[in-house]
Amino acid sequence: MGEIKVGVIGVGSIGKVHLQAYQAVPDVKVVAVTDIVEERAKQVAESFGIPRYYTDYKEMLEKEDLDAVSICTPNYLHSPMTVDALKAGVNVLCEKPMAINAQEAQKMVDAAKATKKTLMVALCWRFSDEAKTIKEFVKQGYLGDIYYAKVGILRVSGIPGMGSWFTNKDKSGGGPLIDLAPHFLDLAMWFMNHPKPISVKGYTYAKFGPLDKRRGGWGIPEPGGKFDVEDLGCAIIGLENGATIFVEMSWASNIEKDTSYCTLLGDKGGAEMMPPKIFTEMAGKYVEIIPKVEKVNLYVEEIKHFIKCIQEGTEPIPKGEEGVIDMQIIDAIYESARTGKEVRF
């Protein structure tokens, strides 16, 4: 197929991470970037040695002969930009969350099917050795029937871009539930072989953001901007096979330190992902297995996979349809929290 020509749309914090990853992958050349802030687009293009920059992504799609784009913009732009790129005949790697709701995510999947182009959601934790190791233990039957999963990402002071699009529900879709949950909710569903969700009971809280407390280092704050999202959310998700997933996500909490976890309970064994541990019975004893894992650059591995899918015409991991289901669950959490009632699928 030859060298893959790439454009990156949005070159703020996560856009630069994508650029670094692309430059670490063979047979790939980033030929252009787009950002609505011209000075930022110019500066990033110069610092990464990229020949051209734009302030309008549609102009880039029209003028450049691109094989692929990364979409690294605010959440509300993910769906329209993805659809435009796919219709322009360009393969898409879209940052998480897939969109601001499941309806917008479905538009992306429909466009990918209509154009026969690759759509991949950037859920980089799938490419960690920790996640791959746990998945292999699951596949080999060490856990048996997984009936309960518990996942969480909890921060002490991590509200991103206070007052910016991050904390504006119309532009972000929500707070930590839509910002952080896609990663570990995706992992739980993947480990459990994507059982169909049938019910959700969700709760949200905003205890620090409205007081302009607990800012994090990610994003660019905008003084006087809105904060109308949660800073902590949690939910119980019921699945068709009788299993349950518990999810909790926070940008700000009164806890000892930032923590992330993914716990699986099966009838033959249990697992923790961070760091990987397996708990089971062997030779009449309850034992703990600690696999050796390698530290890898999640973004480089993710983009290697994306490029390979384009070169070989194979389906990406994760699939767009899986991303839509994750968004349906997140939508249901917000609806349940708003109404105080369980949402049934």
Score class of each variant (00 low, 15 high):
Ile317Ser: 12
Gly320Ser: 07
Tyr261Thr: 03
Met273Trp: 11
Lys304Glu: 01
Asp326Thr: 15
Ile307Val: 15
Gln311Asp: 09
His305Leu: 05
Lys295Phe: 09
Ile310His: 08
Phe306Gln: 05
Lys292Asp: 08
Ile330Cys: 05
Asp267Val: 10
Lys268Ala: 13
Lys319Thr: 08
Val324Ile: 04
Gly269Met: 06
Val300Asp: 04
Ile310Met: 00
Phe306Pro: 07
Ala283Asn: 13
Thr263Leu: 12
Tyr299Pro: 01
Met282Glu: 15
Val287Leu: 02
Val293His: 11
Ile325Glu: 11
Asp331Tyr: 03
Phe279Ser: 01
Lys285Phe: 09
Thr263Tyr: 15
Val293Glu: 05
Gln328Leu: 13
Phe306Leu: 06
Thr263Ile: 14
Tyr299Ala: 14
Leu265Gly: 10
Thr280Val: 01
Pro316His: 03
Ile330Met: 08
Phe279Cys: 04
Gly270Ile: 02
Glu315Val: 09
Leu298Trp: 11
Met282Trp: 13
Leu298Ala: 05
Ile278Met: 01
Met327Val: 08
Met282Cys: 12
Gly269Gln: 01
Glu272Asn: 14
Pro275Leu: 09
Cys262Leu: 15
Glu272Gln: 13
Tyr299Gly: 07
Val296Arg: 03
Ala283Phe: 14
Met282Asp: 08
Glu302Phe: 12
Thr263Glu: 15
Lys277Ala: 08
Thr280Gly: 00
Thr314Tyr: 05
Ala332Ser: 15
Ile278Trp: 01
Leu265His: 13
Pro316Arg: 04
Glu321Ser: 09
Ile330Leu: 13
Ile325Trp: 07
Lys277Asp: 00
Val287Arg: 04
Ile289Ser: 04
Val293Ser: 09
Asp331His: 06
Lys308Ile: 00
Lys304Thr: 03
His305Ser: 02
Glu322Asp: 12
Leu298Tyr: 12
Glu315Met: 05
Asp326Pro: 06
Gln328Met: 13
Val296Asn: 01
Leu264Arg: 03
Glu272Trp: 07
Gly323Ser: 08
Ile317Val: 15
Met327Pro: 03
Cys262Trp: 09
Gly313Phe: 04
Leu265Phe: 14
Asp326Ile: 15
Met273Thr: 13
Asp267Arg: 14
Thr263Ser: 11
Val287Gly: 02
Ile289Tyr: 00
Met327Thr: 09
